[in-house]
Nucleic acid binder design. Sequence first.
DNA 1: CGTTGTTTGTGAACGAATGCACAAAGTGCT
DNA 2: AGCACTTTGTGCATTCGTTCACAAACAACG
Lengths: 247, 247
Amino acid sequence: MTSAAEIPDTETVPEEPSGGGEPARVAGGIPEATVARLPVYLRALYTLAERGANTVSSDELAACAGVNSAKLRKDLSHLGSYGIRGVGYDVEYLVYQVSRALGLTQNWSVVIVGAGNLGRALANYGGFLTRGFQISAILDSDPSLVGRPIGPVTVRHVTELESVITSNSVAIGVIATPAGTAQVVCDRLVAAGVTSILNFAPLVLNVPDGVDVRKVDLSIELQILAFHAQRRFAERFGQESDSAAEA
Amino acid sequence: MTSAAEIPDTETVPEEPSGGGEPARVAGGIPEATVARLPVYLRALYTLAERGANTVSSDELAACAGVNSAKLRKDLSHLGSYGIRGVGYDVEYLVYQVSRALGLTQNWSVVIVGAGNLGRALANYGGFLTRGFQISAILDSDPSLVGRPIGPVTVRHVTELESVITSNSVAIGVIATPAGTAQVVCDRLVAAGVTSILNFAPLVLNVPDGVDVRKVDLSIELQILAFHAQRRFAERFGQESDSAAEA
DNA sequence: CGTTGTTTGTGAACGAATGCACAAAGTGCT
DNA sequence: AGCACTTTGTGCATTCGTTCACAAACAACG
């Protein structure tokens, strides 16, 4: 759930109505729910490729990705018709097509703001940033952290934010600061031209239209888990004292 | 979109059909999409309470939470009818009701497995674990980390996993290990009785029915951002070379 | 070449989520 | 008490997402 339901926060510019009864088909033609699953498929494909698989059926790939095979096929059908009936999908070719659809054939420059525990974890997580992303800088306001090497870069002072962004044409900003400074950092990122932001600070960021914010929030996830745990608990034993089931 | 969309992974046990035309109403009566937003409302309510607000209208609260006010009212209506027409909601009372709905009136015991950068970040993030959650232990397999104090606890060896869980009646496990060991850790958590798992490792965990897994995955979020960034880019300038828009 | 078996791609039914728009229900002023 | 104003709670239409089930397309083999 999510993503949650995740759960989308994008402000998508609506296209012309385009007649049909299809499920929306925003510009780019790929529904949000599908976009959120493509990275999962991509990871499964890489795993399969490492195992030496040349082709894969929708059933196998769906099992690896933890989804139902009909959903997988419908998702992939939004990218084009890249399967072979009676055989399956060519792994390498599908990797390329999914990557292209996600925009990973170009390299994206990322700046991380905040070199605390979380920022360090992100910068060090080589596995995360393998393909398509490159950390241009990690910034912090604490002078005692500046100059310290973390992962592929060294910490720079947050005053350099604007110059780092313009000189590296950074398109994605990651906010790993405390909640108190997150909005200020966000405003500066946006003013400097960043239109994609990944927010780890526990607050709702305010951004103008045209800026895409995604949030990752531990406490929210924990609370959702707590809800389900409580529900399971109440189901197993009798109903709780006063649930919302009164007439 | 996190969650957005985030995106559900729960195996919910369907209740009796219950007749009506309402949107599903799983056991507990609260739709998934609503559950995912309740923590956001709760945080906004705490912020408002700190500012000294006694009551709040759906418009204000919706603005704080970054959603549409009709959606907010519909969400809250699933908990019961706790507003006063013409006035709004009593902040303190609503905090209590939302907390109760989420199962935060009891304390949940959490164990973090993996004391690397990420595990340390989580254990130190006091802001995350304020209300309703308590870190019972943080575990790692690296002997050089054992004994080191992190946040409210000290690192213990992962061999103690089972005993920690049973003696603290831990209900929630957080996996902050590398991908290679995540499944093994997961299996051990499940075998020890944990039914709620928050997974930070970049892989799809395999769990039996009745276990609830939520994942937090940086690379997926980045890839979704990249997709939208690419789309915006292609929209601004002419269409890309070959999009999927052929007849 | 036809037949059998496999797997994709998708039409169509269903189910969930969103947002509008308004009646119902309250406050406060005169 | 009556009236004007505010805000909740919800029925309804619409959009979005999932799943089923099957025809179309291909491989393999005799």
